[in-house]
């Protein structure tokens, strides 16, 4: 089937809602990461969103590396005591 349309592709063939849930942004060691859930119950790094170039040299922040979900936080302040007061 060939569909000729002036509508953009993402409007004609909309992705399923669960597609969006696969990836999420979390903070790990205070660094933002785009992650996806692995079958092992860990997060797998898809993209490092840091602006610090040195964070890209660290092995444990490289794409493909996994870290436990428990160490990830929703924002960078959750590790600080003043935030949880």
């Amino acid at each position: 089937m060939i569909l000729y349309t002036i509508m953009p592709e993402h409007l004609v063939f909309q992705a399923a809602a669960e597609e969006y849930e696969k990836q999420t942004t979390v903070y790990y060691d205070g660094i933002p990461f785009l992650v996806q859930k692995a079958e092992t119950g860990e997060y797998e790094i898809v993209r490092n969103l840091s602006t610090n170039p040195l964070h890209f040299l660290e092995q444990k922040y490289a794409p493909g590396t996994r870290f436990p979900m428990s160490v990830a936080t929703r924002n960078e302040f959750l590790l600080h005591s003043w935030y949880n007061k």
């Binding site: 610090n52 040195l54 964070h55 040299l57 660290e58 092995q59 590396t65």
Partner: peptide, 17 residues
């Protein structure tokens, strides 16, 4: 790490730039 991305360890540096 090698299995996942085919890369070896990169030098570890202090996060200060």
């Amino acid at each position: 790490a090698i299995q996942q991305l085919g890369q070896t360890n990169v030098p570890q540096m202090t996060p200060d730039t």
